[in-house]
Amino acid sequence: MATVRTARTAWQGNLLNGSGEVTFASSGIGQFPVSWPARSEEPNGKTSPEELIAGAHSSCFSMALSHGLAGAGTPPTKLDVQADVTFQPGTGITGIHLSVVGEVPGLDEAGFVKAAEDAKANCPVSQALAGTTITLSAKLA
């Protein structure tokens, strides 16, 4: 059964001087301010579409990697995943780098890197973002 998740943004003003607020309607976790300066300069307590994509990608990749490792008989005890989304004003999102450090009993470094590459390729968010370059660094703790 398909699920739908909803977020809304209320925006006021023009791009450079305006601001908005993203509301996570499905989860009810809150409202978060957004603005162009937070996207192209310094966050100053505000989020950006790129940070939201980074959150989506890091969590999806974590789930995909955890599932793949468990399915192979080597479930992780811990995965620490970071997604860095690069935004170039005037060009757009130019790349995403995933970094993962894992604790996986019974698995060697080569096996972990292979599992991480597979998760990167098959994570639904990675697939949705296939129009950009996604790189990966993976290592065991």
Rank of each mutant, 00 (worst) to 15 (best):
A2Q: 14
A2S: 12
T3R: 09
R5C: 11
A7V: 15
R8N: 14
R8P: 06
R8K: 15
R8W: 05
T9H: 04
T9F: 02
A10S: 14
W11E: 00
G13T: 06
N14V: 12
L15R: 13
G18P: 02
G18D: 04
G20W: 04
V22S: 04
V22P: 06
V22G: 01
T23Q: 15
F24I: 10
F24M: 15
A25L: 14
S26G: 09
G28K: 14
G28M: 06
P33W: 01
V34L: 12
W36F: 08
W36P: 01
W36C: 03
W36N: 09
P37Y: 06
R39I: 09
E41T: 12
P43F: 04
N44L: 09
K46M: 10
K46A: 14
T47K: 05
T47D: 04
L52N: 08
A54T: 04
H57I: 02
H57E: 05
S59Y: 07
C60D: 09
C60S: 10
F61T: 03
F61W: 02
S62M: 11
L65V: 01
L65S: 03
S66K: 13
H67C: 08
H67P: 00
H67M: 10
L69D: 02
G71Q: 08
G73M: 02
G73L: 06
T74H: 09
P75M: 04
P76F: 00
K78R: 15
V81Y: 00
Q82R: 15
A83P: 05
V85T: 13
V85P: 14
T86N: 12
F87W: 14
F87E: 08
P89I: 09
I93Q: 02
I93Y: 03
I93H: 01
T94Q: 07
T94H: 03
G95D: 07
G95Q: 07
G95R: 06
L98N: 05
S99F: 08
V101W: 02
G106C: 02
L107E: 05
A110F: 00
A110T: 07
G111W: 05
G111R: 01
A115S: 07
D118T: 14
A121W: 03
C123E: 00
V125T: 09
S126Y: 05
Q127D: 09
A128W: 00
A128Q: 07
L129K: 00
A130G: 13
T133F: 01
I134M: 11
T135R: 03
T135K: 08
S137H: 12
A138H: 06
K139D: 12
A141F: 11
